[in-house]
Design a protein around this nucleic acid. Structure first.
Lengths: 237, 237, 237, 237
DNA sequence: AATGAATGAGCGTTCATTCAT
DNA sequence: AATGAATGAACGCTCATTCAT
């Protein structure tokens, strides 16, 4: 028996159809991200995948469908990787500090080179491949943003329920925090093309956390992160 | 007289080198925005410009330089169009309402179909045409954002100087307001691909204005723009 | 059975890769010789070879490499065809007559239309394709000259060893005989462009043979073609 | 008066029609020799001549006629430059040495880079421009060979008349001497593409002179240029 | 006579896709 | 299912030539 099943001979060099399909998709993603859709060359994809060109066509029909399959998978991957430390934002006393940490982590996944390349490609090809952006409502461009916003929404809602935050709409507040981080981060890094310095990441995160706490931190006695006397004055009213 | 001089009969059909150059750039912008860089066909550009292909090459050397020239001009145009009503944000009593209006106008210029197409193309080609995004620091992608932020910074600083706002850094605050608007707007509209409903624009603008005022509105007696009961409740504490 | 295997029905219409490669090279040689390198049109070559243009590029990469491959093969062919009657120059008594015959045959292969066309093309493109003329030392331009000179050198050396010729350097003498023939022949025929009359060929051959015998024939008794008394005197030593 | 006649303002910068015609021809010759006919670009010629393209067309009609005019002039120039020291071959005692000197000079003019380039171009384009080689009978390819042969013929005839040479046909003998030099020189130098070392030139010249004297030197007392012992023996008679 | 702009045909090369094995 | 060879349609760019000034 020469050709074995998918996991026949162990993990060393998986053979068989699924492995080839996977190799093609990996190579295709690389090439599409590197070159863009129309510059990408099916020959190059086949070569980098180690298969013949016809095999690519047998599996995916044409370049367009290959692209769609690859980008869908890429976005799923990006979503899977969009996680932050789940222990954060659980202790009110550390709220602002945790927000900064959340910001740093979020910028990390958001500006990850591969995730960024996916996002740029989705934006680039949005007009020519309408089916790409339909499924994901809210118009996410490949960074797992909905996942992150959802997580943050829950945390904000909890903090609000505990009285630590004063938010009229936790979902909106979560989105706003992400917006502050993401917009600044994307603009500064040319949509992920040039990496941000650690200082810049910190600065962006602190700015966002600062505005967020200014806006939504509950104004009660001992608010550590709201030392301004004006608030006290306001409270007197 | 059939053939007129260079500036013969007026604006009806301007002749001469500048007019041709202009026609080429207009056609090229159309085609590039419609098709993207590598899909764009120089033949089509020439035809749409009403000139021969070699005339395009005589003027611009090659496709790449044509692209650069066109995109540079497009960004300049976008910057020129990036203006909001300059009478806004001058009367503290109307601050929040004015912020909402500023937001609506800003989203209008930001999501203008052509401006959006330019931005998408700049993002799409950033990796292959590094020279495109260098000049503009802060990494602007074709929406005249720096211009708008600058204007807003001035207004914020004035309001802060009058004591109406309490902002540690007017530039940062202006950027944040824009970030709230722009990120939400871009995500919702697929980077300008699908127009936003008037309601969505209003919603985004109000959310941004709300967060902004929550964060930065000075808390002094008679804060007209902070009528939320929550604060009153808060004041009672 | 309509479509046959690679080597199906014999020589009638050979199929397969080698046959196509050969067809391309044949067509390319024809076109290059007819038009020169830069006038030659790859489309025409493909059509004359009965293949598509991309097949040409699959096999040879680009026009330049196709040219190099074709010219190398053409020179090898020319060398293979560069033979004269090997029974000549073996009998001293017929030396001069044999030299004339050698001359005629040599001019025949030298001025063969195809060989001449190859030589003209090699000369024409020498400056633009330096790799073409490097391998063959002595700077041969496609007529198998080294082969012929080598053969002649051997014969001259043998005759000298027998005392029939008096040559200080057989190789040089052989080259000189060829030079006399070739230069006159090439000049007269416009480098093979216009065929030489039989009379002209004879005249050139006789002149060369005459000078050769005058210069190198041993001066001993009975030298039919050397009636000068000096030679007789010389023979007495 | 701004534009003056051809020699208006002195030799510094000749103006006027003839100067322009000359400038075009000079530039065209450069470009044609450098690039060959079909690679040569009329735009480049015009630019190098310092005139506009249309001026080229006004003067010469089209590329073909420009080429013909230029090549005709180039051959005339080459003929004009084809001279050797006219004091040579006048003293029998120095005959062989003078032949070597003639050979060196002849190789010098024959392998002059520009003359060689003209020759290569004439050979290259012979098939496509039949009118180029018609006028000059004997099929000369741009080196002034007929001129040199003619001069040499006269000298050989004189020497023969004096009894120093024994030549059945001075014209043929002169051609043969030139053939020995030229063929070897052209082959060795890749038709003038790579310069010959001084040693190689000497070697070629001596070989040709040696064969020539062996073949045609009159065998009488005092043959100064035949130092071989056999000849000395011969001289004793 | 001279110029700069313009033209249309053509060329080398590439690419997504399909046959034949 | 997989391969290597083949295809035809484009595409970016160039060039000899001409028009309008």
């Amino acid at each position: 028996m020469t050709t074995v099943g998918t996991r026949g001979t162990g993990a060393a060099a998986p053979r068989g159809v699924p492995a080839k399909r996977r190799a093609i998709m990996d190579a295709a993603l690389d090439v599409f991200l590197r070159e863009g859709y129309s510059r990408a060359n099916v020959d190059v994809i086949a070569t980098e995948a180690g298969v013949s060109k016809q095999t690519v066509y047998n599996h995916f029909g044409d370049k367009e469908r290959l692209f769609n399959a690859v980008m869908e998978a890429a976005r799923a991957d990006a979503d899977a990787g969009a996680v932050v430390d789940d222990t954060l934002l659980r202790r009110p006393a550390r709220l602002k500090g945790d927000l900064v940490k959340v910001g740093r982590q979020l910028l990390g996944v958001l500006l990850d080179p591969k995730v960024s390349a996916v996002r740029r490609l989705l934006i680039a090809e949005a007009a020519h491949h309408p089916e790409l952006n339909q499924p994901c409502e809210g118009g996410d461009h490949g960074g797992g943003l909905p996942t992150l916003v959802q997580w943050l929404t829950v945390r904000v809602a909890c903090l609000a329920a505990q009285g630590d935050l004063e938010v009229p709409d936790p979902d909106r507040a979560a989105s706003q925090f992400v917006a502050l981080l993401a917009f600044e981060g994307l603009q500064s890094s040319q949509y992920g093309l040039i990496p941000l310095t650690k200082e810049r990441v910190d600065s962006i995160s602190r700015s966002a956390a600062d505005m967020f706490t200014r806006a939504y931190l509950a104004r009660r006695a001992g608010g550590a992160s709201a030392p301004e006397p004006v608030r006290l004055v306001l409270a007197e009213n």
